[in-house]
Design a protein around this nucleic acid. Structure first.
Lengths: 135, 135
DNA sequence: GTATTGCCTTACGTTTACGTAAACGGAAAC
DNA sequence: GTTTCCGTTTACGTAAACGTAAGGCAATAC
């Protein structure tokens, strides 16, 4: 028999945690909530590409401020077979909700960034004005 | 004497809570954390424009996913006298941090919205294809 | 052999952001 | 006068997202 035909890479929990900048506990927590379900070899977790993809989605979802439970439904939605049309209308509605949410966030963000700009300019003006501020 | 010269409007906690879509408890909580400090007439809170401005900032900060404590430092930063140049460099550094954060979030958001788009298109294609999906 | 290393589970602790109940005060309504 | 709304404080409760031991198993390191 040929030596090791399977070429798909795998990772340990330590590598995953390290690479994604989280703790083991966090990774296990995500598994507890059903956000990821890494393979098991015996009792040990073995991570595949799929798990990394999901972890990326999870972390992005977090940065966007979504609770983990919602993140689960979202990435499950992405993973769905897409063959069962019975639920497509529902899914589309979900998507609309999600988009509305995201677009509100985007408006917030644009506003915040803009204000940072003007504020920074005010600060810099102060700095270069030589210090004569109208007390 | 003329009747009531002072024309600046004020609000009660109920009006504020109602208008901003939060509870009394939430408003008081924000006061506990020093995010707002409404006037007191006797024991009762009286809200002014300034408080509403801050509440808007707070809620936006929340939608952006910032913890309340951070939000406090941010809006305090906006409110700062801007006369004490001693701290301006520090403030500018803070602003840079904040901007980096916000810009990461923006990238996340753009990605998410884009993926929603393509996903929705896939769904709609499924729907209008008449249902002949390759089982 | 045993000591270290890496992984595992179980389970209680912690922080954040409020919810919620209890108990009280003052003004208006009847 | 007393009931009914506002408003108040105090204080315990809770959900989410992990942190942090505590204890155990299995493989490599010496």
């Amino acid at each position: 028999m040929a030596a090791s035909m399977d070429t798909t890479p795998t990772w340990t929990i330590a590598q995953i945690a390290d690479e994604f900048g989280v703790t083991h506990r966090t990774v296990r927590h995500y598994e507890d909530l059903g956000l990821i379900s890494p393979e098991r070899r015996g009792t040990t977790r073995v991570f595949h590409r799929r798990d990394r993809t999901r972890l990326n989605l999870i972390l992005r979802g977090k940065r966007l401020g979504f609770p983990l439970e919602e993140i689960r439904t979202i990435i499950d939605l992405y993973d769905a077979p897409l063959g069962k049309r019975s639920q497509l209308e529902y899914v589309l509605a979900q998507i609309d909700d999600r988009r509305a949410d995201l677009e509100q966030r985007r408006r917030d963000l644009e506003d915040a960034l803009e204000e940072l700009d003007t504020f920074e300019r005010r600060c810099r003006a102060e700095l270069t004005s030589g210090g004569r501020s109208a007390y």
